[in-house]
Nucleic acid binder design. Sequence first.
DNA 1: ATGAAAGCGCTAACAG
DNA 2: CTGTTAGCGCTTTCAT
Lengths: 344, 344
Amino acid sequence: MNFSELARHLGVSATTVSRVLGGKAEAYRISEETVARVRAAAARLEAAPDPLGAGLRRGTLGMIGLLVPDVTNPFFSSLARAIELELRRRGLAVQLSDSAEDPTTEEELLAAMLGRRLDGMILAPVGRVSPRLEALLRGSPMPLVVVDRVLPHLGIPSVCLDNAAAGRLAVAHLIQSGHRRIGCLRGNRDSHPDQERFRGIREAMGEAGLGPEALLVAGTGYSREEGLAGAEALLNRASPPTAVVSLSGQGIFGLLQTVERRGLAIPQDLSVVAFDEQPWSAFMHPPLTTVVQPIEEMGRRAVEMLCETEASREGGAGSAGGGEREAVVRLRGKLESRESVRTA
Amino acid sequence: MNFSELARHLGVSATTVSRVLGGKAEAYRISEETVARVRAAAARLEAAPDPLGAGLRRGTLGMIGLLVPDVTNPFFSSLARAIELELRRRGLAVQLSDSAEDPTTEEELLAAMLGRRLDGMILAPVGRVSPRLEALLRGSPMPLVVVDRVLPHLGIPSVCLDNAAAGRLAVAHLIQSGHRRIGCLRGNRDSHPDQERFRGIREAMGEAGLGPEALLVAGTGYSREEGLAGAEALLNRASPPTAVVSLSGQGIFGLLQTVERRGLAIPQDLSVVAFDEQPWSAFMHPPLTTVVQPIEEMGRRAVEMLCETEASREGGAGSAGGGEREAVVRLRGKLESRESVRTA
DNA sequence: ATGAAAGCGCTAACAG
DNA sequence: CTGTTAGCGCTTTCAT
């Protein structure tokens, strides 16, 4: 049942129905009686506004797009959940797409979403930003915020972990526990998080008076296989590290596999700090000491930023364009100390 | 750039632009020259059809709703990914919502989605079907398919695991491995999958000549905590089982925790078969023998069924309503035999 | 081979 | 306090 039909039934105009059901009865000072009649009839006949009609008229659909590299990754599924929840609170729906960690697919999907008439987009980029992706992003006709990674120099609002600080956190803990030879299992070195985490680690080592030779580096990507290869390289060193921090959430699988293959025990033979909570992290033998990201907050902030962007667009549309500041929110990670680090 | 503007630029009508860009040039025998001009201009000016305008006109938006209990659960995130991929192949977008395993939230979200003008819905129900949910489902104004669980007697197309067969598969393997005292860690007993899996297990036991006393039952829900409580109950029995099958994907955590607490070893002291692949299942000490669901196929079939429903609606709209058959597709599970089952 | 006109359902602007 | 009018962008008759 649509508004015009309902209006005819009641002998009022569609406008009135729209005002009542759109919550504008007060503003237009519709009589209480009319309001009641419309409400009752609407309830009885299950009349609800058609979002398409309203959307077309308003130029907005109440839907924002969310593009992630892999919903199957616990980090992104938690993020998606947090984002959906917060958007729902604000009456917005989410269209989800998954780029399967593939930059080309990502470009296509982003272009498609940018084309649909969404009210905004939240993007968790796959990795390095291709020129084509950058062009898409620059030309974006809608509010956009980037999560998890910051795309330097693009001036797009972003929210991500303070990766450098998180890296420091991890090694500081290791150093404090007496470790002096530390392995770092890196992820995708093109990615901002990996670079930042690594930077934080190097700085923390330096501040503790440990030279570069004390930091053993391996790993070339975020996958399990790459984690395994990197771990092998680390443990094959003439004098292997006594502790390893894995910058990759999935790569830790590879490390664990290698450790097991060699019959090593954690933390007796090797201490481990992992990045990113996994569903089983707390239930391993032993439970894994982990740098956890404040995912809920990340989602909340992303939505906030998106809505602010939207608001400022409407509000300050014609104002002098000088104030466009690059907003990057960096969230603090937390070290969940469990049992995979041995105090030397 | 919208169609009318583009049309004005080119000195043609919006109708022509629509026909060319809508792929109907042939049907309307637009001249090749015009087609070329329109295409070129559209590409240059980045003109694309506004889905809202088109949707309003056509009465369809090219979007289907997906409501799951918890995207964070690996099963549902994999399912969501599969569904999204298949829908994308067909040019459809997906709106995602997460009911957080809460029946009330589920009702609200379902009602909201049913109200939006989507082209269809795929629902993975939380659990038991409340009268209100049932009413919503019955009155659904749009094509709907249910996944993972079948709602008996509602006549809604569903696709799910052949849970009874999967249950048999699990215990058959255990029996074949020499186990004669088998524990069953149940999930939510109100849920169809749990009931069916359990039925399959009982049948398989019976067929192997094992009486009811050989089957030890515990567990009251799908959560980790409930899994733990159930596992405790099982292992506290005077004569505990030599093998346990966990019907709950998350509950297995609880079982594993209990086993560790007691210093038991798998599979030496206790054999384990788990339902539902988890990211770490293959990487545990030992790797977990698991009944895996064909999630990709499940997603694909759900989408197929949805689209068929949609098609038949349009096609046979006015036909005698007698042919409404309940379509329930049951998919075969597969036993991934790893190392958590000991041959006695 | 193309266009004009109508209308999908809604709401903002402009009357009263 | 309420209604009329117009138009969001598109596609589908119907008419050349």
